[in-house]
């Protein structure tokens, strides 16, 4: 991994609070950095095309365009898009749907900051090589 070249993360969640939490955790790691935020699917797609992030964290239940649909569209745009679903409890069927549409992995809310770090470690592992 080349230093200075931090992994670029796009956060998609309709709640400002959640976005801030995630951003804090991610920006504390020394190898990844939040480069964009989106509060719904449409914003996410636009941001993705502009920013080409290394990883997208995706909320599933959002106004306007939901997570499932957004994942589908992102994968259509970029087959290699790395999307990690951040979902609430009790949404197993939705999360499964998301996985089928091409989400790379998932974590459940509420999460601990170590879990987010682990996501960055594991999911971005391949891209480190």
């Amino acid at each position: 991994m080349v230093s200075n070249e931090k992994k670029r993360i796009l956060i998609v969640d309709d709640a400002q609070f959640t976005r801030n939490m995630l951003k804090n955790i991610i920006n504390k790691t020394n190898y990844s950095q939040v480069v964009g935020e989106a509060s719904n699917g449409n914003e996410a797609i636009a941001a993705y095309q502009k920013l080409k992030p290394d990883l997208v964290t995706m909320d599933l239940v959002m106004p306007e365009k939901g997570g499932i649909e957004t994942i589908q569209e992102l994968i259509n745009i970029d087959k290699a898009a790395t999307i990690v679903v951040v979902s609430a409890l009790g949404q197993e069927a939705l999360v499964l749907e998301a996985a089928k549409k091409g989400a790379k992995d998932f974590i459940q809310k509420p999460y601990k900051s170590e879990q987010i770090v682990e996501v960055m470690d594991r999911v971005l592992l391949k891209k480190n090589k």
């Binding site: 409890l89 197993e92 999360v95 499964l96 996985a99 089928k100 790379k104 992995d105 998932f106 459940q108």
Partner: peptide, 10 residues
Amino acid sequence: CVFKKVRLYI
């Protein structure tokens, strides 16, 4: 792990 099914799927 809460969503075993999805985990298994992945």
